[in-house]
Design a binder for these strands. Sequence first.
DNA 1: CATGAATGAGCGTTCATTCAT
DNA 2: CATGAATGAACGCTCATTCAT
Lengths: 196, 196, 196, 196
Amino acid sequence: MARVKKTNDKRDRIMNAAIASFAQYGYHQATIADVAREAGVAAGTIYLYFKNKDDLLISIFEEKVQRFIQEFHRQLSREKNAQVKLSKLVHLHLVEMQKHPDLAAVFQLELRQSRHFMSAYPKTDLKVYFDLIGDIIEEGQQQGLFRKDVYVSAIKRAFFGALDETVTSWLLAGKNYDLAHMADPLADLFTRGLRE
Amino acid sequence: MARVKKTNDKRDRIMNAAIASFAQYGYHQATIADVAREAGVAAGTIYLYFKNKDDLLISIFEEKVQRFIQEFHRQLSREKNAQVKLSKLVHLHLVEMQKHPDLAAVFQLELRQSRHFMSAYPKTDLKVYFDLIGDIIEEGQQQGLFRKDVYVSAIKRAFFGALDETVTSWLLAGKNYDLAHMADPLADLFTRGLRE
Amino acid sequence: MARVKKTNDKRDRIMNAAIASFAQYGYHQATIADVAREAGVAAGTIYLYFKNKDDLLISIFEEKVQRFIQEFHRQLSREKNAQVKLSKLVHLHLVEMQKHPDLAAVFQLELRQSRHFMSAYPKTDLKVYFDLIGDIIEEGQQQGLFRKDVYVSAIKRAFFGALDETVTSWLLAGKNYDLAHMADPLADLFTRGLRE
Amino acid sequence: MARVKKTNDKRDRIMNAAIASFAQYGYHQATIADVAREAGVAAGTIYLYFKNKDDLLISIFEEKVQRFIQEFHRQLSREKNAQVKLSKLVHLHLVEMQKHPDLAAVFQLELRQSRHFMSAYPKTDLKVYFDLIGDIIEEGQQQGLFRKDVYVSAIKRAFFGALDETVTSWLLAGKNYDLAHMADPLADLFTRGLRE
DNA sequence: CATGAATGAGCGTTCATTCAT
DNA sequence: CATGAATGAACGCTCATTCAT
């Protein structure tokens, strides 16, 4: 068990070092040597745990980002009211991003760029997140809370984009204000925009 | 004048070639040789008009993107009603992006990545665009159309993010639907969300 | 004794795995990991039995190739007639190579390349084999079977080269014909070429 | 014209540097940096003239080796008597190899190794040379000089192998004797071996 | 004896940039 | 102004070898 733990530790250390490096320099500018130095391992060691540099980025999405989405899913499943759900999602998103700003930076600043080649990697796209949002909106429609004529597949993207940009702006501003303060205004905007 | 004209032509050809190349391959993957080939000039020629590769990208923002923003500004200045203005801005944004998909691709997919180093280049940020949006919202408040308690600096970013993501999704989907169709639902969402 | 036996088994397994790997991928392309996998041991274990990768190749020559030469020597010592001896050597060479195609591949395809650095390792050269051939020719001269004016040190190399290339061609052709069939024509060519 | 000349010069300088480097260190041990240093160019320059390191080796065969074979072909075409032809070929081979020992080293010591991956590159094999030899033998049969029952496809390989090994031995001995002296004994061996 | 995780030197290759023509 | 051949720094990745367990 100690052995397994240790191995996971190293893999995790590398992945976190990658997140930190990618956040600081950007995916392309960050070198494997940067990640290795940050992780306190030799460059070659990275290749014992990841196929290549791309695999590092992809793994971050698969393991870190998707974990967030699943966690959001789980936490929201307890709430029945779709309007409250949407509001909670805004809070969760901003609070978690604020808690993990490096991951947020990778997520925000590298994702777009990456989505290019990530079209090829099904697990790395945001479909699951878009679907989570879309489902909440549809629930709200069935609960009579949201308008029936709302174009869900357009709105779910708009909603995500609004959250995304909010985080990006915060990052680019140097994280010099409380991101969570943006939650209520945003939630308010959307729930009003969607209401009957 | 003919000489000047000719020079500008070449500079423009290079810039358009850069837009096309960056759109197709991404900024980092596109090479100067790609841009040169696309522009029909020698690689060295590019350095007669631009300081370096970064300068090419920065110039695209400074000259192409800012031109769009100014044009939006001009067109919207004729409209008095802030709610209509906001709606028109959504239309303008989506219609223009649809008309210039390569520029849109650079704008959408490279911008985030680039904003990193673009923090250093004041002219390349989106402040002007954010301000344009913010001003409209404040106008609407003064006209009694939008709620007074709206947190403008949060909402303007959300608004931009929604537009941005709408275009990005369209690009990543392969531009296989009419982007302008998204305008009304989006405009509707935001004007309702902001209304008294 | 059982212990010793076991140890020798492992050393042999590694050496045979090396022969198989070098034959399939070539010396430089084959990795220690390949050899280890093929031998069913850990990579580090190889270094308990061999100094390094080069030593593996050298040992193959020292132990496997030299064994063949000794065996040829032994078998031919029973035959008195030099012309028959030469003919038998051709048969032995081709038959044994056909029986051990992987060893043949290492011998043929890697030997040249290797002889470069093998100049440094006296035991790995083919002097013994050349001498075996040369001795037979000289025997034939003393027996009055071969011409006296034959330049032995030239002919023994030619003879070896002819055998060598015959095997190489067979290997590169994918071993898709019976190598032993080449024996009589070759033996015939040389015995006629050398006869009074 | 001066320009073209200069360009060819550089390409040639690189190719000759490659021949020298591959001869000295072996293909795998020689680095691109070695070749560049030897050629007096930057490493990157090599890639303006050759696709990659493999392409360098392949080009040597295509352009240098095949040129020799064609030259041999041309020179032998003037000779009618097949027995004399075969004898001349032996001389040509050894004399040319002695004149170009680096090329010979690449040819001899790297060819085997390379034939592995060179199976994929039709132009790099020795079929043309084997055919040249085979044709001469068949001519000799038609001229009544060589035995009809000779197995040509076996003998042509043996003949090549004999030449090949003669050169290799000379190279490994440090080129410390006159290679051309081997020509007569070899030619004699083969013409006698083939005669009626 | 055996393991296999870790190392890090080393190499092929790319490409932004320069500059002689 | 324009060219494009030449440069060389930089980086991802491999793999022989070591050594703590």
